[in-house]
């Protein structure tokens, strides 16, 4: 009984010594002082790009509010006949609210031409494209060329600026009469990409 009590006492003393040593650690603290500042909130910009059809004036943002890519119908003006062309275009505007420089480049992919309700018209339709500074250039026949596999890339579009993609749709002069009244669906993808050019570099 006496031995047990002695052991308990010794244990208590040991714990007290250890706790005392831990407490001593605090004596390593050196002076310190602090000053406060409130830098505020940093906010990132929006990446808004608008598309407007040249012929109809129909407009949409490139990315819808649900995050999906928008589809815009260009509806070229005029009637397509053998050996003739019709024209359409889209105005692409950089509507970002970035605080600094924010240039974008817009790329139009190679178009795909698909027959609507069967038929053979697609085999006689050619699509050429060009970029322009103004939508009025879309009806001018010069400057059009086939879109390469890497796509047609616009010049840099500055914050608040626009670029125009013009499309020329031609029907081969050798198109047979059997394609008369047929329709094709021409689709291509426009992609906006930020160009590295912020003041402090990317």
């Amino acid at each position: 009984m006496r031995t047990k009590r002695r052991l308990q006492t010794a244990a208590l003393i040991a714990i007290a010594v250890v706790l005392g040593l831990f407490t001593v650690q605090g004596t390593y603290a050196l002076w310190s002082a602090a000053a406060s500042a409130s830098p505020g909130t940093v906010t990132s910009a929006s990446f808004d790009t608008a598309m407007t059809a040249v012929n109809t004036g129909q407009s949409t943002t490139m990315t819808l509010s649900n995050g999906a890519a928008a589809t815009l119908t260009l509806s070229p003006a005029g009637t397509l006949g053998p050996g003739t062309s019709v024209y359409g275009g889209v105005v692409v505007t950089n509507n970002t609210n970035a605080g600094g420089q924010f240039n974008t480049a817009i790329t139009a992919s190679q178009p795909t031409i698909a027959n609507v309700n069967g038929g053979a018209l697609a085999g006689y339709v050619r699509v050429n494209a060009k970029t322009a500074a103004s939508s009025t250039e879309c009806s001018i026949a010069t400057g059009f060329a086939p879109v390469s596999s890497t796509g047609l890339v616009s010049p840099a579009v500055v914050k608040g600026g626009s670029t125009v993609f013009c499309f020329q749709i031609s029907l081969d002069s050798s198109a047979p009469a059997t394609v008369k009244g047929q329709a094709v669906n021409i689709s291509l993808q426009l992609t906006a990409r930020q160009l590295c050019g912020v003041p402090s570099g990317c």
Partner: peptide, 12 residues
């Protein structure tokens, strides 16, 4: 900073 909007590549 209350009105500035940053974009990828920005260093503030």
């Amino acid at each position: 900073i209350n009105s500035y909007k940053i974009v990828p590549g920005d260093k503030l």
